[in-house]
């Protein structure tokens, strides 16, 4: 089992629904978020291009946050999902400093928080909240170890990239181009 997410930049309109759906599903306090939208424009008028991405924790296979956590609060769950055990977190922020994606924040209750790929939903056979809500069906979630999964197939057929590959963290959120 190796969970991953693919985000189709052709379909995504950057509406931020994934952000609100995550906030309400996971009761993320107002002012914080576990996922966010980036619009990257390039070119000069009138030859322009725009890439819109929904970003979050990349659930890296070689996660610097897990390595840097002194209490092992940051750890891998089954399927490679990177999680933070809240009660083991001492709020030292070493993980925040080590994450190349700026995906983590200190929750007002004191522990470090971030995207969980909605592990609680995935265990029940549901998709993460952001994937379920996305109006344009721009997000695909699934198991890379299953060659027949939607995500395995789409990553085989479509050009894709991951963010900051040079950090060498083996990210598991992919962007379809």
């Amino acid at each position: 089992m190796r969970y991953a997410m693919a985000i189709d930049t052709r379909r995504c309109v950057g509406c931020s629904d994934c952000v609100v759906a995550c906030q309400t599903e996971n009761k993320v306090p107002v002012g914080y978020c576990r996922d966010w939208i980036v619009e990257e424009m390039s070119g000069k008028y009138p030859l322009l291009s725009l890439e819109i991405r929904s970003e979050r924790c990349n659930h890296c296979a070689d996660a610097p946050c897990v390595r840097s956590c002194p209490t092992s609060a940051s750890h891998y769950e089954d399927g490679g999902i990177v999680m933070v055990t809240h009660e083991e977190c001492i709020g030292c922020k070493a993980c925040i400093a080590s994450c190349p994606y700026d995906a983590r924040f200190v929750h007002p209750e004191g522990y470090v928080d971030k995207c969980t790929f909605c592990l609680h939903r995935v265990k029940d056979g549901l998709k993460p909240a952001c994937v379920s809500v996305c109006p344009t069906h721009a997000m695909i979630f699934g198991d890379l170890d299953d060659a027949n999964s939607e995500i395995s197939k789409i990553l085989q057929s479509r050009t894709h990239k991951s963010l900051i590959p040079e950090a060498g963290t083996k990210p598991h959120v992919f962007y379809l181009l």
Binding site: H86, E87, G110, Y111, L119, R121, K123
Partner: peptide, 18 residues
């Protein structure tokens, strides 16, 4: 901060989110 703010959220041992 990490410990004192956590009082409201201490799930019983071994109980996962699901």
């Amino acid at each position: 901060v990490g410990t004192s703010f956590l009082k409201g959220f201490t799930p019983p041992e071994g109980l996962n989110a699901s």
